Simulated assay, not measured.
Amino acid sequence: MADVTITEGDLLRAALAKAGRQAFLAGEGGMSYLILAVAPTGQDSEQRAYGGPHLLMYAGEQADRPAAEHREPWSAHLHGAYGDYVATVFDGSPVPLDAAADAELCATKVLAWLGKHLGDVTSRPEHA
């Protein structure tokens, strides 16, 4: 069996998936991040996520870093359909957290923001 390394992005994707939201690993200029379509209908592909308002979520510069190397907190930023920055949704934990706890916190904040601003009715993780 191949050695499987769980990444920071894997943890956040799993936390969002608990609420039925799908994020995609993407990258540009040597950075990697997760992208999440704001509208639930844009969740079927990375390209569709970019086609409308979306959240870009960063753990420093590498969302595909092994979770064991987690050093920088997750943050989430709203971008418009043309990629323009709109607002910061979550600016990261003020205290250091391990990779799993940080991913859960970011997912909780993102899901709460979606619920508050968009009337998103997707189910929430138990801790939300």
Rank of each mutant, 00 (worst) to 15 (best):
H127T: 03
E126F: 11
D3G: 06
G51Q: 08
G119V: 14
K109W: 11
G51W: 13
G29Q: 05
A37S: 15
Y33D: 01
G83P: 07
R13K: 15
G92W: 02
P40E: 15
H127K: 11
L111C: 08
Q62T: 02
W74E: 04
A107R: 07
A67N: 04
A101W: 03
D10N: 14
A2Y: 08
L78G: 12
R71A: 13
F24L: 07
L11F: 03
E61R: 10
D102Y: 00
E72N: 11
P40Q: 10
V95E: 06
A17L: 04
C106F: 04
D64P: 00
A68K: 12
H127F: 07
E126S: 11
G80W: 14
T5A: 13
W74V: 03
A15D: 09
E46L: 08
E104S: 11
W113E: 07
D84V: 07
R124L: 13
H70Q: 03
E126D: 15
V121S: 14
W74L: 02
Q62G: 03
E69V: 01
A15W: 08
H77N: 13
Y58Q: 01
G30M: 06
E72P: 01
A101F: 03
Y33V: 03
G20K: 10
A14E: 15
M1V: 12
A128D: 13
E28D: 03
P53T: 02
D91Q: 10
H77D: 11
V4L: 14
I6R: 12
L34R: 08
A49V: 12
G119H: 01
L55Y: 12
V95H: 06
T108C: 15
R65D: 00
